[in-house]
């Protein structure tokens, strides 16, 4: 069985800042692996532990991805295919799903593809469903449980207070939530070994895509601007003993007309 975790390198949203006009600036902001993608890698490693003979092949994209992918190799992926995302900058999920689908076909397919419920920057949750359509395979999103038994993926999904248990024939796609597991922290030795694991870098042309299929030319949605919402708050610090603070807070809330 071959499992392909999808790994997206994103700007660290906690370090994104707005300029004086409120326009978001991302230049110089460091990159990281999108949060839930590590939960996806962890889910893959746990399946491998129970199913000997499994191969985990990460498919990762990002601006500095050759370095970034080492983190997931250290967690237990066997090898990685990486694509530098500056090659498809300006893509929406319509365009980036073309890249991911083409790369998966190029690597000879996958039995189980695992992504995150949403990415840290865009958080559309569209990539997995789009990929399922391109590859013609089923998908379950927001997984909080995932096991493979024979030719079936058993997936528990949590959607808005309803738990659904699915049985899905392989090949399929599953996108996972943070609650599915706690991603492991690799030991030093694994980090050292990760540098030696095979990592192949592909260009878009290697996966058979031309420039106009991706980026702004291939996108279905254009971002016109990205602006920080205004947050003007009073920022009053209430001091004193708990009783004094409570009293002052009640007065303030009354003045505000809260009750």
């Amino acid at each position: 069985m071959r499992i392909v975790p999808l790994v997206k390198q994103v700007v660290d949203v906690d370090q994104v800042k707005a300029d004086a006009d409120g326009n978001i600036q991302t230049q110089g902001v460091p990159f990281k692996i999108s949060n839930y993608d590590k939960n996806g890698v962890e889910a893959a490693v746990r399946i491998k532990e129970k199913n000997p003979g499994t191969e985990i092949v990460a498919l990762a994209t990002g601006p500095n991805i050759k370095e970034g992918v080492k983190e997931v190799l250290a967690m237990g992926c066997d090898k990685a295919f990486v694509i530098n995302s500056s090659e498809f900058k300006g893509s929406d999920t319509l365009a980036s799903s073309r890249v991911i689908a083409a790369a998966i076909q190029k690597m000879g397919g996958a039995d189980l593809i695992i992504g995150g419920e949403g990415s840290l920057d865009a958080y559309t949750g569209f990539l997995g469903p789009r990929l399922s359509m391109r590859l013609g395979i089923p998908i379950v999103t927001y997984a909080v449980g995932l096991e493979v038994q024979g030719n079936l993926a058993k997936v528990r999904s949590n959607v808005g207070g309803i738990l659904e248990d699915f049985e899905v024939p392989l090949p399929c796609i599953v996108t996972v939530s943070e609650e599915i597991n706690q991603p492991r922290l690799p030991a030093l030795i694994q980090i050292l070994q990760a540098g030696k694991k095979p990592t192949q870098e592909w260009k878009l042309s290697d996966v058979g895509l031309s420039a106009d299929a991706v980026g702004e030319a291939g996108a279905g949605v254009k971002i016109l601007k990205n602006q920080a919402p205004k947050m003007e708050r009073k920022r009053v610090r209430i001091k004193g003993t708990p009783e004094e603070a409570a009293e002052q807070l009640v007065q303030a809330l009354r003045k505000e007309g809260v009750f």
Binding site: L94, A122, G125, F126, T141, G160
Partner: peptide, 22 residues
């Protein structure tokens, strides 16, 4: 948009090769 219906919307948009507003 619900956590589930978004899946189908994105899949439909893929079949039609168009964008999908989230």
């Amino acid at each position: 948009a619900t956590i589930r219906s978004k899946d189908a919307a994105a899949r439909v948009a893929t079949k039609l090769e168009v964008g999908c507003g989230c």
